[in-house]
């Protein structure tokens, strides 16, 4: 599972039958430098990659979400599975939670200076976030 921010939506008119009514979002994973700005990442680590995920919880652009992969993602899309029944949708990443709040901080002993990386130019993200009330 990973924590990410919803940055976009995917539309498609032609899709597998069982996927009708399922929303697809583009989520950008948070990396260590987003959560704890004073920790620098090794060079060559791209933090601009987006992941396409299925969503039935109703997450919107700008919200933080937790994404699960694989079997867990399929289970998340089918909340009314009976015992022994297996999920059938062709999905391998899904929103399993919409985040209210997260906290992240470096502890003493967290070795941040071993592998200094290039400076990132993306906007700084605060280490604590709150979900906007609708």
């Amino acid at each position: 599972m990973f924590l990410g921010r919803v940055v976009g939506t995917v539309w498609s008119t032609v899709k597998w039958k069982g996927l009708e009514g399922v929303k697809f979002l583009v989520v950008r994973p948070y990396h260590l430098a987003d959560l704890i700005p004073e920790v620098s990442c090794p060079p060559g680590f791209s933090s601009e990659d987006g992941v396409v995920v299925a969503d039935i919880l109703g997450a919107g652009v700008g919200e933080d979400v937790i994404i699960a992969y694989g079997h867990s993602a399929r289970v998340a899309l089918e909340p009314h599975l009976k015992d022994g029944q297996l999920p059938s949708r062709p999905v391998d990443a899904a929103v399993v939670a919409i985040v209210d709040r997260y906290e992240a901080s470096a502890q003493p002993g967290f070795d941040a200076k071993v592998k200094p990386g290039e400076k990132k130019t993306r906007p700084a993200t605060s280490a604590t976030s709150s979900r906007k009330k609708k």
Binding site: M1, L3, L32, L35, I36, I56, L57, G58, I66, V75, A76, P79, A94, V95, V96, A97, I98, V99, D100, R101, Y102, E103, A104, S105, A106, Q107, F110
Partner: peptide, 18 residues
């Protein structure tokens, strides 16, 4: 390095600490 709190989650996610 931290913890995540979420009230809106998929049912089977349960109430475990993330």
């Amino acid at each position: 390095i931290g913890e995540v709190w979420a009230t809106k989650r998929a049912g089977a996610f349960g109430h475990r600490k993330a």
